[in-house]
């Protein structure tokens, strides 16, 4: 088992919560893990990414090589395209379609979506809308974890347990809302892959 993921988004969108849930499931499964994060200056509204690698064998590089990522998981559509050179020939692009516009020259939304749809293997999901549908407007990230779960050799029940562990302090209601977001994302991918 090996899964190399590029997590992408904009500083402040909270891509690291995705890594935390996946990381929990990976560690509980006894897999090796390396996860390179971005701290510091770029966090202030700039583009950020995290290299997330899990494997049943020891992992050397903290960075995913270009052309080797099995998944790009992006919480923002334009940001998903920034990491295409990393995606492998058989890799999947999984991205939120709700844009985060904090630059004056943000490209035409339709063109961004068109570029995403050019990818032979992609899941374009309006994670913001789905999160609202399950009455968890802040659960966008967990919708994407659910959407990605279909493409990973990682125990889905452990992802749920990860959510319990991470959000448990905030109460059962928050845990349930995030599991609902996770399930909704997973269902979407099953239907649309």
């Amino acid at each position: 088992m090996k899964c190399d993921i590029i997590l992408a988004g904009v500083g402040g969108q909270g891509i690291l919560s995705i890594a935390t849930v996946l990381g929990y499931a990976a560690v509980e499964s006894g897999f090796y893990l390396k996860q390179a994060e971005v701290h510091g200056m770029s966090q202030r509204g700039g583009d950020v990414q995290s290299n997330f690698r899990i494997s049943d064998k020891p992992i050397f590089s903290d960075l995913v090589p270009k052309g080797k990522a099995d998944l790009i998981i992006s919480v923002e559509p334009m940001e998903s395209l920034r990491y295409l050179p990393y995606l492998s020939e058989t890799g999947w692009l999984i991205t939120n379609t709700s844009p985060f516009k904090n630059i004056p020259d943000y490209p035409d939304e339709e063109k961004v979506i068109a570029e995403i749809k050019k990818q032979p293997r992609h899941i374009a999901i309006d994670a913001d809308a789905i999160a609202k549908e399950v009455k968890n407007p802040r659960g966008m990230n967990m919708v994407l974890v659910g959407a990605a779960s279909v493409f990973m050799d990682l125990d889905y029940e452990l992802m749920k347990k990860g959510i319990e562990v991470i959000f448990g302090k905030k109460g059962q209601e928050i845990v349930d809302a995030n599991i609902a977001a996770l399930n909704a994302g997973r269902e979407f991918s099953k239907k649309n892959k």
């Binding site: 200056m41 700039g46 583009d47 960075l63 052309g67 920034r82 630059i103 943000y106």
Partner: peptide, 30 residues
């Protein structure tokens, strides 16, 4: 990074597709 080291070793490493032109830089801001 792994790709630069591969190139220095003379190993080929196939990259994914290039970044589309419409992608704009997103510098940090206040």
């Amino acid at each position: 990074n792994p790709n630069l080291v591969a190139a220095s070793l003379g190993l080929e490493m196939k990259e994914g597709s290039p970044v589309p032109e419409i992608v704009k830089p997103r510098p940090p801001k206040l």
